[in-house]
């Protein structure tokens, strides 16, 4: 080509360098991104639900461990005005004198801290009285209830924790349903065992089962355990017999 023009093309070398720089920049960006926001492995947490301490319908029956303050607040509705509390008459004059004392001029020099302390003491006193009054009310109510033969069965009117005992019993029953070996009332498994002439357990056939998997498992384990020390059947014959397993005992069925 005999062209005399001088070109100002961007050289291939420049393009190469630019391309390499771009790739490096992208790589560094990815590296930086990976370090900035590392992909945390997703670990699925397993939650175990404590069946025994699940919240219950009756507020008082709820577990006292979880929120003792709440339970107390629910059972003792706090009146806003202290005068609304029915308090024993003998304490009234005492409060009166104290309040008069607070107003007397000699206490004007009292430090604020001392005042606050005294105020707290007074409040505690009134709180204690209020609680006592409410308790008294509750006791009379319970007495009436037990007199008319209503309320929870087996709950003695005198003891305040009777409902809690019932609560505990019901929780235990729930838990027992989970952990108990037998979930049906009368589990029954009929098994036919075949024992070979050499005393080896040749065959186990479960002919009938009440559907209680736990009891069935127990029966299987029992058979396994027992079969370890079977002696050989007499007369070198094969032994074949049915057994009916119950929690109370095992009855032998008729041999086939």
């Amino acid at each position: 080509m005999s062209s005399q023009v001088s070109r100002t093309d961007t050289g291939v070398g420049v393009s190469f360098i630019a391309s390499a720089v771009i790739h490096l920049a992208v790589f560094l960006l990815f590296a930086w991104w990976g370090r900035q926001f590392p992909t945390a492995p997703v670990i699925q947490e397993t939650y175990y639900v404590d069946v025994v301490t699940l919240p219950t319908v009756a507020p008082q029956a709820g577990s006292t461990i979880n929120n003792p303050g709440k339970t107390k607040a629910a059972s003792l509705p706090a009146p806003t005005l202290p005068m609304a509390v029915p308090r024993p008459p003998k304490t009234v004059p005492k409060t009166g004198t104290q309040s008069i004392k607070t107003a007397s001029p000699q206490d004007a020099a009292e430090t604020e801290a001392a005042f606050a302390e005294r105020m707290a003491k007074l409040e505690k006193n009134s709180e204690a009285r209020r609680e006592e009054a409410v308790l008294e009310k509750l006791r009379s109510k319970v007495k009436v209830a037990s007199a008319s033969k209503t309320g929870m069965p087996g709950a003695g009117g005198a003891d305040a924790g009777s409902r809690y005992a019932d609560y505990v019993r019901s929780r235990l029953e729930d838990a027992l349903k989970v952990t108990s070996s037998y979930t049906t009332k009368n589990p029954e498994v009929a098994v036919r065992l075949t024992i070979a002439a050499d005393g080896r357990l040749a065959r186990i056939k479960i002919e009938r089962s009440s559907g209680d998997a736990a009891f069935e498992l127990a029966v299987r384990r029992a058979i396994d355990l027992a079969s370890e020390k079977f002696t050989a059947p007499p007369n070198h014959t094969t032994f074949d017999n049915g057994f009916i397993f119950k929690p109370k005992g095992i009855s032998s069925g008729k041999p086939r």
């Binding site: 961007t10 420049v14 393009s15 391309s19 771009i22 790739h23």
Partner: peptide, 17 residues
């Protein structure tokens, strides 16, 4: 990738000009 991007850049400027 590096080479092809270098060519892309080179060709882009060449064709545009």
């Amino acid at each position: 990738s590096v080479v092809s991007w270098a060519i892309i850049l080179f060709k882009f400027f060449q064709v545009q000009r």
